[in-house]
Design a protein around this nucleic acid. Structure first.
Length: 713
RNA sequence: GGGCGGUUAGCUCAGUUGGUAGAGCGUCUCAUUUACACUGAGAAGGCCAUAGGUCCGAGUCCUAUACCGCCCACCA
């Protein structure tokens, strides 16, 4: 071994990764199963959550790569035909947002570009990022099979997504409907309910005189078209008012006729118990209007400006118009009072924080209840194991209360919806091959849908799509996959939907186990964010301490589902551990110069005991690995290696090595425990273990530790 | 309002069939060039949130309470 007293990761890592790639060890079929291997006919498969191709690797990705690589390497060493399939995500909306920001910095805007221009630019941008991301995934030591890499916009993937869409349509599970949706006026697209977040704001709260009633609102600019007064049917205060009764009153822009509506959705204890409704811009109001078959009028356009119904205020942005409307109402004597600090919760766009404007818009929806039922059954029958377990309940709760999913987006970057509609009669058609031009009902011309799919619609098909459903060998061999490992945060976005669409298309669960990791936080336990400036770049840590140290720091003590503060000191501790491994190995090698691999050795009782002890430890660790408790397994091997092997066994061996009687037995024992420990350490710390293994005396010099046998027996 | 977690050593957290409290980091004492100072030997430090209950025995199971956190829905 080299004279250097410290392990130098930067020198070693690239070289070792190339050695593995050259050996072709990442592919499940690359290696002949060992004779007598009990697992030779078994497979193991993880589909990597496709990495967003819009930036670079962050701490969360580093965690994904580490955990999934540990699982894959472990199973591979146990003799399974292990496949870890890598992939990249075009990440529709997310990427378009990133790119729009880039355009903004350059003083450009997507609204001044054609769809084609924008698509081309984002596509080029994504292509560049793909290379960058992949090289970073490799830096993490990921032993995924690059020959099977997939991208969410690959032709074969898109074909599968289209087939699924068509099947859903044929089964009546997809419909195009005018419903109230979440509209981001800044990004000019609708968003699903999962893509909005709640934010507490302090606004003024206006009490307005509306005929005989006082109504309260924080949004007077929506009130132009309000012509229904809704009250609870059991509200005694208003028992003299009858449902449908008309009342003449003076309103913002003149006299109007308003109608009394009785509906149970009203909270009698809130304010005066009377409200007016704006069905076009409020979800609850929309439902009331639907129930009573009331008129719905658009007040605010999709850019967030008032429409002609607002009279003199038409064309104004809502926030600009609000004080002016109040001023007018005041001069008309219609303002009863203004509450200054009204705290309420508003929906905002999860990307840009701007206010979500509910709008009625024709969109494509997926009927979720029929899709959720089989998923609920599968989970209730424990066909899918959740790690940690409580995600089972969380998923079930969400699935049981599921609502229809808006899968269309008005953005350019994504998979175009293969749909057309008739310009005359508005009939819809699914046209995967882009062949139909005339309406079959009225002979009118067909117009192509410009919407794209919500990214999650395609990602939800990822496990079977990447494996080549329905006919490929990989699909037949590896589906259902063994583990889906991803962030707990996206349990609804992704995991639950994969279960639903997986069951719908393949009739099988997409994965047997779901392993959900928590957030990676900064050293103080705070969420990392660019604005706070506390983002830890995993690549910096690799440069400083080596990939192996980073991997240990990410996995040891990180139980699934709980968040992990990433402390540089912790990584440093594992860098020290790497040095320890290096030097212990150096010691053993230095004392092995006269050692012959092929000679039979008579072990003495002490060394035999030590080996048995190691086997016992190996067994315990194996059990933890099988239980997905990598955070304990990693800690155990760390502890054994440092505090048993180094502190006790090596220290004691110094004497027995110097006596000719015990030297040979000690040499054998040291080498055996060292190489066994390295094997157990390998899934956690692949680079240093391989580098040392390459220098150990062994029978077949071509072998790599990554395809060595896991030392459980 | 509905759901789900958490509360254990100064800090971050383990602790799954209930059997005398564990790790890492930090702190303190000692060792001073040893394969490794990115080191070694040792030490201090916990009525396991609170109150009941089941049991021979509870950090672990049950019930209630308090505080912290997350998610979902709603608030005109």
């Amino acid at each position: 071994m080299e004279p250097s007293k410290a392990y130098n990761p930067t020198e070693v890592e690239g070289k070792i990764y190339r050695l593995w790639e050259k050996g072709g060890f990442f592919a499940p079929e690359a290696r002949q199963p060992r004779a007598g291997n009990p697992n030779k006919n078994k497979t193991f498969c993880i589909i990597m959550p496709p990495t967003n191709a819009n930036g670079s690797l962050h701490a969360g990705h580093a965690l994904v790569m580490t955990i999934e690589d540990i699982m894959t390497r472990y199973k591979r060493m146990q003799g399974f035909r292990a496949l870890w399939l890598p992939g990249l995500d075009h990440a529709g909306f997310e990427t378009q947002v990133v790119y729009e920001k880039k355009l903004e910095k350059e003083g450009r805007s997507r609204f001044k570009m054609t769809r084609e221009e924008l698509y081309k630019e984002i596509s080029d941008f994504t292509e560049n990022n793909k290379k960058n991301i992949n090289s970073q995934v490799k830096k993490m030591g990921s032993s995924c099979d690059w020959s099977r890499e997939k991208f969410t916009l690959d032709k074969d993937i898109v074909k599968i997504v289209y087939d699924t869409f068509e099947k859903l349509k044929n089964d009546g599970l997809v419909y195009k409907g005018k419903k109230i949706i979440n509209w981001c006026s800044r990004h000019q697209t609708s968003l699903s309910d999962l893509e909005t977040k709640d934010e507490e704001r302090t606004d003024k709260f206006y009490y307005l005189k509306y005929g005989p009633f006082v109504i309260a609102t924080a949004r007077p600019e929506t009130k132009f078209g309000d012509k229904y007064m809704v009250m609870h049917p059991k509200d005694k205060r208003y028992k003299n008012y009858k449902n449908g009764q008309k009342i003449e009153l003076e309103w913002i822009n003149g006299p109007i006729t308003a109608t009394i509506i009785k509906d149970q959705a009203i909270d009698m204890n809130f304010g005066t118990g009377v409200m007016t409704i704006t069905p076009w811009h409020d979800a609850v109001d929309f439902e009331i209007a639907e129930r009573h078959n009331l008129d719905k009028e658009q007040i605010i356009d999709f850019q967030g400006r008032l429409l002609p119904i607002a009279g003199e205020f038409a064309g104004m942005k809502i926030l600009e118009a609000r004080p002016k409307i109040i001023e007018k109402l005041q001069t008309k004597g219609l303002v009863e009072k203004i509450e200054e600090n009204y705290k309420h919760i508003v929906k905002t766009c999860y990307k840009c924080n701007s206010l979500i404007e509910p709008q009625i818009k024709e969109q494509w929806f997926l009927k979720m209840k029929p899709l959720a039922e089989p998923a609920i059954k599968a989970i209730e029958k424990n066909q899918i194991k959740f790690i940690p377990e409580h995600y089972r309940k969380i998923s079930l709760h969400w699935l049981k209360n599921i609502i229809d999913w808006n899968i269309s987006r008005q953005i350019v970057w994504g998979i175009p919806m293969p749909a057309k509609f008739c310009e005359k009669c508005h009939a819809e058609f699914i046209d995967i091959n882009d062949k139909i031009t005339k309406c079959s009902k009225c002979d009118g011309l067909l117009i192509k849908e410009t919407d794209t799919f919500d990214t999650w619609f395609s990602s939800s098909q990822w496990p079977f799509a990447t494996l080549g459903f329905p006919n490929s060998k990989d699909y037949k061999t590896f589906y259902p996959t063994d583990v889906m490992e991803t962030a707990g945060e996206i349990i609804f976005f992704w995991v639950a939907r994969m279960i639903m669409l997986g069951l719908y298309i393949t009739k099988k669960i997409p994965f047997k186990n779901v392993y959900l990791h928590g957030l990676v936080l900064d050293a103080k336990g705070q969420k990392m964010s660019k604005s706070k400036g506390n983002v830890i770049n995993p690549l910096d840590l690799i440069e400083k301490f080596g990939t192996d140290a980073l991997r240990m720091g990410l996995v040891v003590g990180n139980s699934p589902g709980t968040s992990l503060p990433l402390d540089e000191n912790k990584i440093k501790g594992y860098r020290n551990f790497a040095t320890k491994i290096w030097n212990a190995s150096r010691f053993v090698l230095m004392n092995l110069k006269d050692y012959k691999t092929d000679k039979k050795i008579q072990l003495n009782a002490r060394d035999k005991k030590l080996l048995e002890n190691f086997q016992k430890t190996a067994k315990e660790i194996t059990k933890k690995m099988d239980d997905f408790k990598f955070y304990i397994a990693g800690e155990k091997i760390y502890h054994y290696f440092w505090h048993t092997f180094c502190d006790k066994i090596i220290e004691e061996s110094k004497k027995s090595l110097s006596s000719p009687k015990t030297r040979k037995s000690t040499q054998f024992m040291l080498l055996k425990i060292l190489s066994g420990s390295l094997k157990i350490l390998h899934p956690f710390m692949p680079f240093i273990t391989e580098e040392i293994y390459q220098q150990l005396p062994r029978k077949n010099k071509k072998e790599c530790i990554m395809i060595e046998e896991w030392p459980e027996n």
